[in-house]
Design a binder for these strands. Structure first.
Lengths: 215, 215
DNA sequence: TGATGTGAAGCGGTTCACAGCC
DNA sequence: GGCTGTGAACCGCTTCACATCA
């Protein structure tokens, strides 16, 4: 185990490993080697070992890793042993879809509130989640102990929304607006750009290698 | 200009550059230097020049780039001068949200069909888009000239859906199922994992540096 | 003069290969 | 014998710095 800065690529993979281990646990598998994990889930065994070793010596030489034990370690490392309260800003189609999606699929994250600037939407509910006026963000965020914000507003207003969020003391932000954001201070912003992803596929299709369907 | 394999990181940025140029064009800006672009949109000027140079010599020394001309080049490079027809597999909450989202925000991509296995959903419409039986995928895909597929089904069935898609000859796939997929042949799969993104934020929040809000 | 295009240097992540331990 | 943990080699992307050219 080393005391180094851990790359985001590593932490992303930790999340993947945890899911894989959950699958194994569901099958009642007790131990697994890095090689076994890699083969089963199309991963790289050296990378698994290296990633895990950043956080501790969880394995047993000659045996592998104990599935349940490692699951607990990963859960703690990823901070998934505590609840997180999520606010979604932008109650448009994407925002409401994310509210449903996260509400259903995520166990440690609960969507506590939504925000919008549209008077028509304010006061309505998406499932159990109320839509508040974005002007009240700081107050509601504090009241509901929000610690994660999701930006699902048009690109043009994303930067100003980010400023409202960070002023309220939120440190973790997921951004779905297709625009690069200027981030100040120790705030983590993860941008998921659905447009870039699609255009990247378009580029791939435009390459001559793929035009005939063979290569 | 070099004849090398171009990294996906580069093509992703090309998509960003195009958006930036569109913004400049909307402001009637005629020329821009790599430095000007970088300052304005928080990018890196050396990287802009290097990225563009992979595809040609679009700039003029001492001047910069002509905005309109470069926009056209990027549009062509990214294959955005031709229409793409998208199929969304999985008519659940995420799938329907994506149908709406892509239908509204993307100009060169049109959602032509949706698919599901649930008899209740088959035959219904999301906006103008009909939901078909996944069993008819190959037929409909051919009929409607689908060239991009979006996977928005549960993780457990994502792999089998991918196989249906690739057997039908689709080469470009966007995957929202939270699972690593085994890809065969010259098919491009882009996975967007909303779970990983959230858990990565959770990790960030769990770090001691961030617990006091300062560092 | 001013900005591009590009070799070269720098840096970070991945893969290799093996010593160390069960 | 088997598998982990890890230094070293490798590889690819980013950044630098400057020759080149309008």
């Amino acid at each position: 185990m080393k005391v180094e800065k851990i790359s985001e690529l590593t932490t992303n993979r930790m999340s993947i490993y945890l899911r894989c281990l959950n699958a194994l646990a569901a099958e009642n598998v007790k131990t697994v080697s890095s090689d076994g994990l890699a083969k089963r889930f199309h991963l790289n065994s050296a990378q698994i070992r290296k990633d895990l070793a950043y956080f501790g010596e969880f394995g047993v030489r000659g045996v592998g890793y104990y599935v349940d034990e490692l699951r607990e370690h990963l859960t703690k490392i990823l901070g998934l042993n505590t609840e997180h309260c999520v606010a979604i800003i932008g109650a448009g189609r994407l925002g409401t879809a994310l509210a449903d999606y996260y509400g259903l699929t995520q166990t440690n994250f609960s969507v506590a509130a939504m925000f919008d600037a549209d008077k028509e939407k304010i006061g309505q509910k998406i499932g159990d989640v109320e839509i508040f006026d974005i002007k009240d963000f700081a107050r509601i965020a504090k009241r509901d102990k929000i610690d994660v914000a999701v930006i699902a507003v048009p690109a043009a207003v994303a930067q100003s929304v980010l400023e409202i969020i960070t002023k309220a003391g939120i440190k973790a932000v997921m951004n779905f607006a297709p625009t690069p954001l200027k981030v100040e201070g120790d705030v983590k912003v993860k941008t998921v750009d659905l447009t870039i992803s699609l255009e990247s596929l378009s580029y791939f299709l435009a390459q001559p290698t793929n035009s005939n369907g063979k290569n």
